[in-house]
Computed example of a mutant assay.
Amino acid sequence: MFVQFLAATGVLAVLTMVPGPDMAVVTKRAIASGWQDGLRTVGGIAAGLLIWGVLTVIGLAAVLAASATAYTIVKLSGAVYLGFLGIQALLQSRRSRSVASAVNVPSPSGNPWRTGLVSNVFNPKIAVFYTGLLPTLAPSGFSPHLGMTLLFLIHATLTLVWLGSYVLVLAKARAFFEKPAVRRTSDRITGVVLIGFGVEVAASRP
Rank of each mutant, 00 (worst) to 15 (best):
P124G: 07
P108G: 09
I45C: 02
G83H: 00
V26T: 11
A13D: 00
L150E: 09
K28D: 07
A7L: 15
L146G: 03
Q4H: 12
P206Y: 10
S140P: 01
T136D: 05
W52F: 08
P139V: 12
W35A: 15
G83W: 03
S93Y: 01
I87T: 10
A138G: 09
G34W: 09
R205S: 14
F152D: 01
A89D: 07
L194M: 02
A24D: 07
A203Y: 13
V63L: 14
I189V: 15
L50P: 06
P180W: 01
I45E: 00
P144H: 14
R205C: 12
A181N: 14
I154R: 02
T27E: 04
S119Q: 06
A68G: 10
V118H: 03
A89F: 08
R29K: 08
A79S: 12
G116Q: 06
L163T: 04
P180A: 06
Q36N: 13
L133T: 13
P135A: 09
A181Y: 12
P21I: 05
S67I: 03
A32R: 03
Q88E: 11
T69G: 05
R95G: 09
G198F: 02
T72P: 00
L64G: 03
I126L: 12
G86V: 13
P144N: 10
F2T: 15
A47R: 08
L50Q: 01
F5K: 12
A62I: 06
V57G: 03
P106E: 13
Q36G: 10
A47W: 07
R183L: 08
A79M: 03
P112E: 01
P124F: 06
V99N: 00
R29M: 12
V18N: 11
A89I: 07
K28A: 11
S143C: 06
K172D: 05
V99M: 13
Y130S: 14
V3N: 14
I154A: 12
N104G: 14
V80W: 08
V54H: 04
A89W: 05
A32N: 11
G34L: 10
L85Y: 07
P108K: 08
A8H: 05
R114C: 10
L85E: 06
L82H: 01
D187Y: 00
D22C: 03
S119Y: 04
G132K: 02
L82S: 05
V25Q: 02
G147F: 07
K179A: 10
A202N: 07
M148V: 13
L90Q: 10
F129G: 00
G141N: 04
P112H: 07
G86M: 07
A203L: 15
V169F: 10
T69N: 10
L170V: 09
S186C: 13
D22W: 00
S143H: 07
T56Y: 05
P144W: 08
S140V: 15
L117R: 10
A79P: 08
V14I: 14
G86Q: 08
